[in-house]
């Protein structure tokens, strides 16, 4: 099926003396009716990408196709795209109904259809009772839902969401996440959500796109990406904290919950790699401890293991066992961790 949005080698460079590309040569297909998330650390170009899709920014090079047609220079008002901003951007001088109806009125729909569809959209987010109020009289979570209703009401060909949940407290965030997924499934809309929260991306995505410094690192179904990070950047971003150096093997990684700690001089299983190490730190995490182990034999890597923690102290010698089926081979050796630029 034709993608709703296609980015074709899109780059954007902000003007200025030390112009670095915020997005470089990005190829991306957004599948119809699916939930796509753009995931990456702060400053990696997520918002820039979204703003180019919406038409608020022109790519410096490359093409943007919407519904198969070149829309690179189409102004935002002609793109039929629904955008939910991180700051909500509700019109403070209009009632909730007028906010939601705004995009319907610009489409010159008849008055009764405007009222009906605005009403439906508010119902979808459970805010019919707030119809006559002003945005300033609503809580953050409610404003977020109005912003969602306003974007959904126009039946956009794609719904863009820029970190819509990051201003909410942790509980509300989880609740709104479910609600977002429900609205997307009920309306069948194509959605692109930007986030730097991997948990959010894992829960919501049909396709997850990981960006680093304006470039695409890996994309796919989270069920495939999560257990198989392609390179060290993706692995680090997804919480693979261990990068042991095993004799005769290329770069590998393993999650802390899969690393077993045995008494010194104990033998690991046949299907495990073993390394001698010294405990350097034991951190209490609630249901378990995180134990850090220095492994001089493993290229001096510090390995982290999830462990009950009882009886281990810094300085203790241990044997680290790495089950081979949990070791993930990485494409690159030690690419620098691309955090904030």
């Amino acid at each position: 099926m034709e993608p709703v949005v296609r980015l074709d080698r899109v780059s954007h460079r902000f003007g200025g003396r030390d112009a670095v590309a915020a997005v470089s040569d990005l190829d991306l297909d957004v599948a119809r009716g699916r939930f796509t998330t753009l995931l990456g650390p702060s400053g990696c170009g997520k918002t820039t990408t979204l703003r180019m899709i919406a038409g608020f920014l022109r790519p410096t090079s490359g093409r943007i196709l919407l519904e198969g047609a070149d829309a690179t220079s189409t102004p935002p008002e002609k793109r039929n795209i629904g955008m939910v901003f991180q700051s909500y951007a509700l019109f403070p001088h209009m009632t909730i109904t007028d906010n939601v109806a705004f995009g319907l009125r610009t489409r010159r729909l008849p008055g009764d259809e405007v009222r009906r569809r605005a009403g439906e959209a508010l119902e979808l987010v459970g805010l019919s009772h707030a119809a006559g109020r002003k945005p300033g009289e609503l809580s953050g979570g409610q404003q977020q839902r109005v912003a969602l209703a306003r974007a959904v009401a126009i039946r956009p060909s794609v719904l863009l969401l820029d970190e819509p949940l990051s201003n909410l407290d942790a509980r509300l965030r989880v609740q709104m996440r479910r609600e977002l997924l429900r609205v997307q499934r009920e309306t069948g809309l194509t959605a692109v959500l930007v986030t730097h929260d991997q948990e959010e991306a894992l829960e919501l995505s049909d396709t997850m796109v990981i960006l680093n410094a304006g470039r695409l690192e890996q994309q796919g179904d989270p069920r495939e990406v999560f257990p198989r990070p392609a390179n060290r950047f993706v692995a680090e971003f997804l919480g693979y904290d261990n990068f042991p150096v095993l004799p005769g093997a290329g770069p590998v990684t393993i999650r802390p919950e899969h690393v077993r700690l045995l008494p010194a001089r104990a033998a690991e299983g046949a299907d495990e790699a073993g390394l001698d190490g010294t405990v350097t730190a034991v951190t209490f995490q609630g249901s378990h401890c995180l134990v850090e182990v220095d492994t001089p034999a493993g290229g001096d890597a510090t390995l982290r293991s999830v462990h009950p923690g009882d009886g281990l102290r810094p300085g203790d010698s241990v044997r680290v066992a790495l089950p081979r089926r949990h070791l993930v081979a990485l494409a690159d050796a030690a690419a620098p961790a691309g955090a904030d630029r």
Binding site: E77, A89, L90, G103
Partner: peptide, 13 residues
Amino acid sequence: DPRLEEAARGLGA
């Protein structure tokens, strides 16, 4: 907030 104007444009204005 310049986003307000963008929001209006995005909604077809």
